[in-house]
Design a protein around this nucleic acid. Sequence first.
RNA 1: GGUCGAUUAGCUCAGUUGGUCUAGAGCGCUGCCUUGACAUGGCAGAGGUCACAGGUUCGAAUCCCGUAUCGACCACCA
Length: 898
Amino acid sequence: MSTTTVYSSQDVEARWYQHWLNKDYFHSEPDDREPYTIVIPPPNVTGVLHMGHMLNNTIQDILIRRARLLGKNACWVPGTDHASIATEAKVVRQLREQGIKKSDLSRDEFMEHAFAWKDKYGGIILEQLKKLGASCDWERTRFTMDDEMYKAVIKVFVELHQRGKLYRALRMTNWDPEAQTVLSNEEVIFNDENSNLYHVRYRVEGTDEYIVIATQRPETIMADTGLAVHPDDERYQQFHGKRVIVPLVERSIPIITDDYVELDFGTGALKVTPAHDPNDYELGQKYGLEVIDTITADGRMNEKAQFAVGLERFEARKEIVKLLKEQGDLVEITTYRTRIGRSERTNSVVEPRLTLQWFMKMDEFAATALEAVHSGEVKFHPASMVNMFESWLKPENVRDWCVSRQLWWGQRIPAWYYGEEVFVAETADEALAQARERLAKPELQLSELQQDEDVLDTWCSSWLWPMSVFDGFKDAKELAYYYPTNDLVTGWDIMFFWVARMIMAGYEFSEELLGKQLAEQKGRMPFRNVYFTGMVRDEKRRKMSKSLGNSPDAIELLERYGADGVRFGMLSSAAAGNDIVFDAPIDPKTGKVDNESKLCDQGRRFCNKLFNANRLIQGWTVVERDPSAEEELAATWLEARLNQTIESVNAGFDGYRLSEVMMNLYKFIWGDFCSWYLEIIKPADGELSRATYDRTIAAFEQMMTLLHPFMPFITEEIWHQLRERNEGEDCIVSSWPTAQTFDPQLLQRFELLQSLVSGVREVRKTRNIRERDPLDLYFRRSDISQALLQLEGWSAIAQKLAYLRTLDLADAQPENSLTFLVSTEAAYLVLEETIDVVAEREKMETELKRLRGFLIGVEKKLGNERFVSGAPAEVVARERQKLADTQEKIRQLETVLG
RNA sequence: GGUCGAUUAGCUCAGUUGGUCUAGAGCGCUGCCUUGACAUGGCAGAGGUCACAGGUUCGAAUCCCGUAUCGACCACCA
């Protein structure tokens, strides 16, 4: 009868998280320890936890927990981003459902609704992060619209204005007609979509001839102010310098020639609509064409259009097509695929529109950011991400940042206008004072000034995040301690939006906030390392997103596999920068996981393994007797392997190879500790010597500490069961183990033992000999085998694990035995059944042949003078060892074969 | 069109500056095992010309060139 014993994560995780909170372990205050700081990439205040967050925050938690274990003053600052347009869009939608139009509200009323919404839904994602185990300093939770952070944004705007970094200009911009705001280029998502190409004829003025143009947007023809052809296009040579008549509106417009026009696209003729297309705008500028704007801010045709007035863009298109068809001016309609730009937040088709906006000059900032990364002051992991960074920031690709948004939810631009005059100041009173002085109007009243109606782009607050979360723009007390932060963990998709801009702001402002001396001493960069995570994709390789409905319910996942299991799953296939393919299909309707996630399940099973290993140990009775020789040997070996593991874990952390570290620990704990060590020391009578018990517990404890960053809950749970005698200390604040020196030879000898045991087991399996039928094994006498058997404990372990009745040396092969190699040593296993001597010889001869082939390769290498002199001594020595071993193996086999 | 990245076991992926790589892990697969940690387990096994073709090197999964396929990002073809 077997009993099923399963680790149940749910109550354990809730209990320990609460315990950590009660003990205030996550909270950090400046002290004399070395600080270790991470600022969270603030999720949108509207957000709910998704796979990307889980990956991202698991990695941050691993880093911060390890730093805490290393005794550093670990500070992980959480918070949320007000996400200007995304949140405003949601609030507007919700109000609309309640029958309230944004236009019916005053600015203040709207803000009240928005803050109410934020108070209701804003904390959700942070609560969900707690379920993941995130050890953020919740007392430091910040929001980008908090008073101090708001002030910082305003202050920076004023500063940058004074430094000449900001200007206001009329530009062709991306307009979101639904949100009715401008968007930065980065907020426009282009996708290939099916579209129609309408071929429309324009009569050449004073003739009966026509030029046919191709357009995607017939509803804009009323705004046409030119028609362009390629200067070399023979089809249109005779029309150069003439004019054409725009259909419907019957307006005369010039024919221009420019090599921008592609000869072989469409008809080779292009209508020029400067008001509604960025390229056409350029052309219009170049040839002095009139700009006629026929579309309103909410995407409808205005009076200037004359036709389809008041109709929404796409309705207007149908109407205009109908009218053109009636007039016979529509020649044909073809279909094709083209890139359509949509608003990242509202998904509505972006309308190019000429608007007056604030811009920030990027050229110098970009150069600074690039230099910071090139010089290595800011390091990227993986380093290959530098390529992408460069391509974003090189001078020819950098465009000025449009920082104004026609929204209410955000930091209102601190600019006041009086006619053409602009006054930028932190407060209205200062602006007024400026105005009075500059205009020489001491009697000027505030009511005569007009404050800018717009708010600043969300990233205007997030780019200050590493400084503003410590209220660095108010005073440098905390900033002086925590800045620069150590590691930033984020997806590469916001490398330009956020990472680059934080670097810019860091270099621009940290010096004056910290003072020159401190800034020089500590560094002006906002963070020293950036760990880029990959994108989480579904099994079809699509990026997980809400709109696709292909993202699993994170909370369901956490409940199903435990936070530890999910963390393991997330990390086990996520080398830095590499995308993760989440392996469980999602039902798009419910968001439920349809099938087992193998990755998370592996994590869950690992928890179960740990839980049961602990149960085994807890079940033993400790007795006061001397440890046996095999216990001694096994414990010494375990400690050596543990120390070896600590070394590789530390090296892995240093290189940010977190997945590798976790897999190392997994293999060590499951394989070496559970499968080998515990099996060796497992007492038949349930009684273990005090000394061995203590060494086992001590090693297991260190394993818990090493694993704690990755799987915090179960390690804390087991830690306490191991240390009931010492209730006071928690795993989360235990000490990161220091690697002790160990004997590498011991590890080698133990490998021999392992291969002996495996060898015997293999024979048993292939011959159907029960695992526990006792067998006799003899080593062919040699210096090595003799030494092995003399090693205290070695024989006893081998006998125990391989169920050997006899383990001894022999000068000749015993009767009825078969031979296999244990490393270089021949071992004879005596069997009771008759042995097929011919088959055995064949097997050995095959092996011999393989070894001889291998030997040739090694000899060739060592025979090469350039290898021996050129390769590192270590490599040559290793090759020599290989040679000797292979020769010895061959000799052994040859002897046995006679 | 430009740039960058990828291609390793049936699947998903590791493989850090070229040298214990005679290429690993998990899952899946095959066989045996339920005598007290764990069947969410144990033991053993099968499975890879490291996409293809060349080059550099004493030595290449790893560096270089080309080809193929896939992907991502950027770009003004209406």
